[in-house]
Nucleic acid binder design. Structure first.
Lengths: 213, 213, 213, 213
DNA sequence: TATGAATGAGGCTTCATTCAT
DNA sequence: AATGAATGAAGCCTCATTCAT
């Protein structure tokens, strides 16, 4: 095996390790809350030394941000895969589903974002995150504008629709994770279904939000 | 002045100080995030010593919970003041407005609740909080059931409607506070109005969620 | 009632309160250990305010010392009441019994003395304590010297005998309070009896320490 | 040097540091009393940072217990080294000497044990301590039982003899450390000798406790 | 590159003592 | 004299980050 090959493999392994760390961190953050998870716990989970983590990431905050970026990139990937389809409802539906599917994860990211911005930490990565997100948003905006041209959506600024959906999604997540309200929801699946339907058609002209029709 | 009177005044002042501490704590939590606010900062803000705080509250967690309870009691007060009115839409509207009006506060409480429950701290107060909240919920449920009898609401379990509204409110809050999405909303007031309307009529039969009609 | 009488009664009540505080303090120290007992707890137990305690005693250390002095004075009282009797064994026996009877109390005082001396607190009271104790010791020494003249005790320095008895008493107390060794003693009374007998005759010439003869 | 060797050396050094911390802690506890010694003082004494202490021990209480266990293990070691010898008096004598030789240390441990048990701290280590001590006790019990078979000891339950010796040792320690009684003892060595002799023969049949015969 | 021991700033909490009423 | 609210020094412990090997 040549040196080049070796170096490539090494780089490969390094990337792989990075992914492992992020995966472990995410899992632990979700399970215990980011405040109760120490860098050492993450290292243990991956089976490496604490110092090694700092070979990959400068600070714990950077881990936070990379997780969030990864999430947003997955969303971008989803959008790319849908792009070009005819079904105009598909994109918002997928967006909505994606976000609502893993409530705790999104909730975590929301918390992290507020925290990281409050501390003004790692501004470059915050910028990167926002750039990706803006692109994703753009996809949505364009879809919505098409919907408005097709005269199926209320003629309000596009972001009203997005924001509405975002709000509902965000809220639905909060609801389903609320230790208190959880008790009141018997059939989670049915309720999720209900929410998604309302969410998607909420901004439609005419019979908005109607379910099962 | 009699001794009784004196004692009463002292008790009064003690209560007052308690309120001051909670107010200061809330203000600081909202401004810097609860993690960046130390007990000492709260004391400084009120202009008292660190130790004094602990004459009023056993732990920082207790401060968290008392703030949340206060909030929920304000809501209860609101419900009481409305009770007995004819306008069936009034209650949900007020609920929705109340929650959406002070986004950061609610968001803070949501974060705190998750944190406090995760740490299993001050369970008696958590119980108290949930009791009050359950009562508030009851008010809503009853109103909604009346709405369903009056055949203006979709015949799904009442909490579907509440949950929906909760979710939207929660989400709207998250949205309006999101450092990222904020940039996209030009006219906050108009948007809030839009959301509130959608929120209230979302679950209506027929022309749900329609605005200005 | 004249002013004098009133003043006298007041003084009387003041003394009484002082005694109450000391009693309460002792009880609490014995139950929870002096470190876990706050001045506030003592005040609550007596049913007075915390500040009042400081009208009677300058510091918590002073309370410690006054308790110890009271104890030593009780011992002096005991010696006085015996003085003049013929039975030469009576004094040591009473001394030994007195100390061994309330193990935890003595242990507490022992702990306190070390603590207070280490901190060099309230030296006047420490002196007072030692003066009283020296007097008590003197009573013992004289009794022992008489025993030696009567040729019933080993002719070693008198304090050897006292110290021996002290040591055994102290040790017996430690033993009976040791959470560990306690498990090994089935019949406490019988064992105490055994100890006391050994203690008294330990220094005798000839058949020393023999039991039941 | 191989990696294995390196790791071994590191582990070795880690152990060594642990010992250093315990030694420093013990020295400080003995000198100032455990309450006046802060974790930071221990760290300073060793010449390390405060946090490092917590890499080795979870709490200050754990340090207390490990010191006590170490002490008890030394005793066990002593017993092991004697085991099998013919001289039946050797074991109790060594036990007695061991305990009486370092009075302040034992006294410290006695205080610590009571404290730690009152706080119900680190129960696993308390158990471990008691297990070791029970084994040590067993050695003594067996020796004593042999003495009774040989008809040289009073036929009371074996633990009476142990307890007696324990009590005397404990008491002797308390005595020699008592800031008050200390003044009365001129020749410490002679007195210790006196005590040890009494201690060992105290329970003998016949001429018990006689010295130099 | 990987490691993990070491660091120390910083947080929460306790409680003896003071002092204005 | 009695009170108890207020104080703040001081202690224990956590953990992100550094750095020598």
């Amino acid at each position: 095996m040549g040196d080049l090959e070796k170096a490539a493999r090494k780089a490969q392994e390094f990337r792989q390790r990075e992914r492992e760390i992020l995966d472990a961190a995410l899992a632990l953050f979700l399970e215990h809350g980011e405040d109760r998870v120490t860098v050492e716990m993450i290292a243990d989970q991956v089976g490496i030394g604490k110092g090694t983590i700092y070979k990959h990431f400068e600070t714990k905050n950077e881990i936070y941000l990379l997780l969030m970026i990864r999430y947003e990139e997955d969303l971008a990937e989803l959008f790319r895969s849908i792009d070009g389809e005819d079904d105009r409802e598909r994109l918002p539906r997928e967006y909505f589903s994606f976000r609502i599917q893993q409530p705790r994860r999104y909730q975590l990211f929301d918390r992290l974002e507020n925290k990281v911005i409050k501390e003004q930490a790692v501004p470059e990565l915050v910028d990167k995150l926002h750039t990706i997100r803006a692109k994703n948003l753009d996809s949505l905006v364009r879809t919505i504008e098409q919907g408005m041209k097709a005269d199926t959506l209320e003629p309000v600024p596009p972001y009203y629709h997005i924001a509405l959906a975002w709000a509902l999604a965000h809220g639905a997540v909060g609801l389903m994770e609320s230790p208190f309200y959880q008790k009141y929801i018997d059939d989670k699946e049915d309720f999720t279904d209900f929410l998604i339907n309302v969410g998607i058609r909420m901004g439609n002209k005419g019979q908005r939000g109607r379910r099962d029709d």
